[in-house]
Design a protein around this nucleic acid. Structure first.
Lengths: 170, 170
DNA sequence: GACATCATGTAACCCGTTACATGATTTT
DNA sequence: AAAATCATGTAACGGGTTACATGATGTC
């Protein structure tokens, strides 16, 4: 049920349309909780039905601008303070590591080398994102910056670990 | 489609029953790709139908011991070498960070403090797992050890990041 | 004999992905 | 006039979670 809270969270900063939210997902939440267009529109309808958000204005092309209701803000706060983050993390990348023994040592090292490249690319991508964003002093900027730092550190860790792991293969 | 490859991977080491595989998931793959009992049994049936695994022996209580077929091993190798790990990582924990601005600074720091505690617990849990395992020189041991190191480093990174983040909140 | 463990299978529901489907408005 | 962008909605499918359902075998 995190998608709904992601939407509530974004709407807590500014009113926005489904289209706006889709763009916000692409830039800010893409690395924490990716969502597709179809998912967003479906969930917005459900959130409106549940009274957690409301249509505040309508624009050209059937644009519907949603705002967070008092119930929606309460639900967001409840999620943040009263529920534990417990989503099981699944990593395709790490799963493969367990089975590298069915490959030759060279192939196994090759896999880890690719991971190093991907870590570097990811790190660079976040650096570029950092530069492209107009960092203000609003909440999403402050905490978005903290989340971005998480990503930078994660990629650095990936690189160092993959280098170490490569040396473990005899 | 990673569950099927996780099963093929485990079977590449030793023949095993659904029940055995369930136990293996709990100890070795739990942190990379958790799976439930119902999922495992369903997938094993599909894999057998597809000819990637076969029932090699039957035991008491309807126990079916599966082995990897040549096609299964080929599929495992194909997955490891020819397909890219691209599973989008979703992190409930990180998503929440974006919206900590709707809480008071004290509450936000409280959330990060909890993350530090969970990181320490996770680190300790892996240390205990490390000690409880009878590390041999088979493939799953060698690469399982590498995967475990990944977890240790991840938890360390989490702690350091959360401590840093806590200091960023004014 | 009671209890723990071994052992398998199915059904309902929710969430996420991909693809389809349509059309208005703005920019070049 | 053409192309890009804005804007929304639905349907089919696949995978994961929870719960239900059953029973045999080994151990104390």
């Amino acid at each position: 049920m995190s998608l709904r809270h992601a939407l509530l969270g974004l709407l807590s900063e500014h009113p926005a349309s489904g289209y706006d939210l889709l763009k916000l997902f692409e830039t800010s939440l893409a690395n924490a909780w990716p969502a597709t267009q179809s998912q967003i529109y479906t969930e917005l309808t459900k959130l409106a039905d549940a009274g957690l958000i409301a249509v505040a204005a309508e624009g050209p092309r059937g644009r519907k601008e949603y705002t967070l209701t008092a119930e929606g803000l309460a639900e967001l706060r409840h999620w943040l303070t009263e529920t534990k983050p417990q989503r099981t993390t699944r990593s395709d990348t790490l799963l493969r590591v367990f089975f590298l023994g069915v490959l030759t040592p060279d192939q196994a090292r090759g896999y880890l080398t690719e991971l190093i490249e991907r870590a570097d690319e990811g790190h660079q991508g976040l650096r570029q994102l950092e530069e492209s964003i107009d960092w203000t002093d609003d909440n999403l900027s402050v905490y978005g910056r903290i989340a971005l730092e998480y990503g930078l550190r994660l990629h650095t860790m990936h690189r160092e670990w993959a280098e170490w792991a490569s040396g473990q293969i005899t």
